[in-house]
Design a binder for these strands. Structure first.
Length: 589
DNA sequence: GCCGTTTTCGGCCCGACTGTTTTCAGTCG
């Protein structure tokens, strides 16, 4: 391949000047919503911009592509004629005239003030009009001089709260990886279960929806005397600060910085509260609209007709009262799941029990810590029918990647072990490096002898979108390649996903009979939920794998299953739900 | 600004807690 610089230069000349990402458009829409709200615009108009921003942020396809193809954006939920034109404007020009117009009216950055606790549109406007505040620095000054607390509607408590937030900014506001939050949640639930008169307990929120990271934990508990449950919860020793506390609700900050919300309700409302706290917000709003349409009211205590509670004890009752089957929490993002439920076409999401094997495993031959026999034993203990051993290739020297000779030795070793195993098949594989030019790091002569070949990128993550996509497609041109491992290379919170034209990659994989991996490592979860859904819509099968480097890592399968479920993936979409015979056929290109 | 088994106008989810109030607005989830 030509040097990357040359290729980039050619593409820059031929392609569009700038690529506008969906996230940029969503951020622009959010900013418009903030500023309109501060200006006192119609609340429903503000909501329309926010709803559109959510739709855009969760969209599995690139808006710039859709605009380029002349598609009708008004078919997207919450996008009408006006907002469709605004999107096209941003895609075409990289700017939004309306936002520039509003910014001329409201100097500085008033929108960012909305992020401060206790500051909403009304108080931000008051700050601007009475003190001439235009940004964070002005607020800090007003709080320090004491001018802030003298304003009507403000007070010493609020001033102190804002000052505290401004001086400790950046600390503890990072989202936490799901697996880390799990351990904390277990402790908190254990403590809650010892409360007097306790009934059921649960974790709701984005944790229950299995989002890859959580910003806080939402706990709920049922019991005869909610206030006593809240009181008991406050005795948890990890609590560093109490943000608020009432008779049914409390918000606290743990020592580690994680925010935890607790809601305590009577048993007859547990299901409704679980539903309400699980969200997402957009899903809940949509459900409440459904309820209203039937002359009902849905809140966190149940479904009501006038004063009569019709449902609320279980989530199933709540959904049933709205004419819907129970919807798995992973789907509750208002991304079509309510319509699917109503029409009886909810997916039967893949479960851990559907998984028959793990197709991405390392041993100490490369950078794993266990022996081949050790990993095989751990897999048998999980009841797997098969596993694939997939070491790194020679290029990854820090991981003791295998060259042709060492891989040949491992092939013999696996053959020998297979001969002694009755209830587990070990597939001979490799995680071969995809080099910068798209070639593979081992010769075809050895790849041909393997049952499964994963290709993976471990270098040159920074290529531009077209070069990176071309690189992966070129790797897939090698008929020995079966699967792209951790396709985007992201490390949550540490390294961004590579720039990849995902629709083109998915289409290319489908055409070539190549599959994509959903890597279950807690900091990878790659493909992510949106890309999973995109791949499913394209009819592409995926492998759910752990990339295990030690026996306990095989448990990472849970994370891969979570991502898959959020992406609407069913057992039939997954390679490693197939019996060994079928799997082998699918691995023949 | 969007949307429609309430359909082109008139609606748009709902409640808890706090702080600043003297009966409730604002914020948050």
């Amino acid at each position: 391949m030509a040097p990357a610089g040359t290729l980039r230069g050619q593409i820059a000349e031929a392609g569009p000047a700038v690529t506008v990402h969906n996230a940029d458009i969503a951020a622009t829409f959010e900013k418009v919503a903030d500023l309109l709200e501060i200006e006192g615009a119609n609340a429903f108009r503000v909501r329309a911009w926010r709803k559109a921003a959510q739709t855009i942020a969760a969209l599995p396809r690139k808006l710039s592509d859709m605009v380029g193809a002349g598609e009708d954006l008004r078919e997207l939920p919450g996008i009408g004629e006006d907002l469709a034109a605004r999107i096209a404007e941003i895609v075409d020009t990289g700017k939004l005239a309306l936002l520039e117009e509003i910014e001329r009216r409201t100097p500085g950055d008033l929108a960012e003030l909305m992020d401060l606790p206790g500051l909403g549109p009304k108080r931000v406007l008051a700050l601007h009009e009475t003190l001439g505040v235009t940004g964070i620095e002005d607020v800090l000054r007003a709080a320090r001089t004491g001018a802030l607390r003298k304003l009507p509607g403000f007070g010493p408590k609020l001033q102190e709260q804002i000052l505290h937030a401004l001086t400790t900014r950046g600390a503890g506001e990072k989202r936490m990886r799901l697996m880390v939050a799990s351990a904390i949640a277990d402790d908190l639930l254990g403590h809650l279960r010892t409360a007097p008169g306790i009934g059921e307990v649960a974790v709701a929120g984005s944790f229950r929806r299995r989002k890859e990271t959580v910003g806080d934990l939402d706990l709920l508990a049922s019991g005869s005397t909610p206030a006593r449950i809240v009181d008991h919860f406050m005795t948890q020793e990890d609590i560093a600060a109490v943000v608020e506390k009432g008779g049914t609700r409390a918000t606290v900050i743990l020592r580690g910085g994680l925010q935890v919300d607790l809601r305590a309700v009577p048993a007859e409302s547990f299901g409704a509260t679980l539903q309400y706290l699980t969200g997402s917000k957009a899903h809940n709003v949509a459900l409440r609209r459904l309820a209203r349409a039937d002359g009902l009211k849905l809140n966190e205590y149940g479904i009501f007709r006038n004063r009569d509670q019709l449902a609320g004890r279980t989530e199933e009752d709540v959904y049933a009262m709205l004419g819907l089957p129970w919807i798995p929490p992973e789907l509750r993002e208002n991304q079509g799941e309510i319509e699917a439920a109503r029409e009886g076409r909810l997916p039967r999401l893949v479960t851990r029990a559907d998984i028959r094997g793990d197709l991405h495993i390392h041993t100490r031959a490369s950078d794993g810590s266990a022996t081949l026999a050790g990993m095989a034993a751990a897999a048998r203990a999980l009841g797997y029918e098969y596993i694939a051993i997939t070491e790194h290739s020679q290029r990854v020297t820090v991981a003791h990647g295998l060259d042709e000779t060492r891989l040949a030795e491992q092939i013999d070793e696996i053959d020998a072990l297979n001969a002694t195993l009755k209830d587990l098949a070990i597939l001979k594989g490799v995680e071969v490096d995809i080099l910068e030019d798209g070639s593979l790091d081992l010769p075809d002569s050895i790849l041909r002898r393997l049952d499964i070949v994963l290709g993976a990128v471990h270098s040159a993550f920074g290529l531009d979108r077209d070069a990176q996509t071309d690189r992966l497609l070129r790797a897939m041109d090698n008929p020995n390649l079966n699967l792209i491992a951790h396709p985007t290379g992201r490390l949550i919170g540490r390294r961004d996903a590579m720039e990849i034209d995902m629709p083109r990659l998915i289409d290319g994989a489908a055409r070539r009979g190549v599959f994509l991996e959903i890597n279950g490592q807690p900091d990878r979860l790659d493909l992510d939920d949106r890309h999973c859904h995109m791949a499913k819509l394209a009819g592409l099968r995926m492998a759910l794998s752990t990339d295990a480097h030690r026996p306990s890592d095989l448990e990472f399968m849970a994370g891969a299953v979570d991502q898959a479920r959020r992406g609407w993936i069913e057992a039939g979409d997954v390679l490693n739900t197939k019996p060994l015979g079928q799997l082998r056929k699918l691995l023949k290109r």
